[in-house]
């Protein structure tokens, strides 16, 4: 038996919004640690990893590890039936083929129960190595979203150059070129507005904007985004979900042939 309850459906709705354009099907792994999901996009260029920790739930019961194979589009559609303020319970039997989603209004006057058919999915899990990164940039998530969107008007790729004190995002295309320079904040009252740039060694890498734009669908989950970059390895774009977990995206770089 698996059963968990979150005080607000909003966070799970936003999580589904952050995933459904990138992946069509996925497996939620349920264990005593919480819910987690890992999946590559269909082109195998990027990977998304989600962790929702037990401690962040109102209640969490998992008698036995289970894997819930879901169609992301279906799950997102059902989640949309919840109001943001509803509390939400997810429930599944150990060998069941259904996931129950129960939404209760804050005043307790309305309870909606949906049952979603589960899928038997065999999705390859990749080992994500723990590593130190050459550079880590933290910035307002809305600013990063804006940069990715704006540079998409110019080209298909963004070149990210990180040096001490700042970062350049640049794009080239048939119509012209663009460069956006973001400087590290010198003095910030509100942590959410801060830009911090940690540099062990300067890096310069190129990434497909198409995927970065998919990743920025997670913007409503967190005021800040962190970008971890090292030469010739996937970029990590991470959104922390307050008190609950994170959504992390990994994007393979474009490199010279």
């Amino acid at each position: 038996m698996f059963e968990c309850r979150l005080p607000k459906a909003e966070v799970l709705k936003k999580t589904m919004d952050a995933l459904k354009d990138l992946i069509k099907e996925a497996v939620w792994d349920v264990s005593a640690q919480g819910l987690s999901l890992q999946s590559m996009d269909s082109s195998h260029v990027s990977l998304v990893q989600v962790t929702l920790r037990t401690e962040g739930f109102d209640t969490f019961r998992c008698d036995k590890n289970i894997a819930l194979g879901v169609n992301m589009d279906t799950m997102q559609k059902l989640m949309k039936c919840a109001s943001n303020d509803d509390n939400i319970t997810l429930k599944s039997e150990d060998n069941g083929d259904l996931l129950s989603l129960i939404f209760e209004s804050p005043n307790g006057e309305k309870t909606s129960e949906y049952e979603m058919k589960l899928m038997d999915l065999d999705i390859e899990q990749l080992g994500i190595p723990d590593q130190e990164y050459s550079c880590t940039i933290k910035m307002p998530s809305g600013e990063f979203q804006r940069i990715c969107r704006d540079l998409s008007n110019i080209g298909e790729s963004v070149n990210i150059t990180v040096v001490k004190g700042g970062v350049d995002f640049s794009a080239k295309g048939d119509i012209g070129n663009a460069k956006i320079h973001v400087t590290e904040s010198s003095n910030v009252d509100n942590e959410k507005d801060a830009v911090t740039v940690e540099v062990n060694e300067p890096v310069n890498l190129t990434f497909a904007l198409r995927y970065l734009n998919f990743f920025t669908k997670a913007t409503p989950l967190s005021g800040q985004v962190s970008l971890s970059i090292s030469p010739d390895v996937p970029l990590v774009v991470a959104y922390e979900i307050e008190d609950l977990g994170h959504v992390k995206y990994f994007l393979a770089p474009k490199i010279e042939n």
């Binding site: 195998h44 990749l126 390895v233 042939n257």
Partner: peptide
């Protein structure tokens, strides 16, 4: 020109 690499060339199956 630069070519897109695959995520599975960096991360191996568990």
């Amino acid at each position: 020109s630069k070519q897109q690499t695959s995520i599975s060339s960096f991360f191996k199956p568990k």
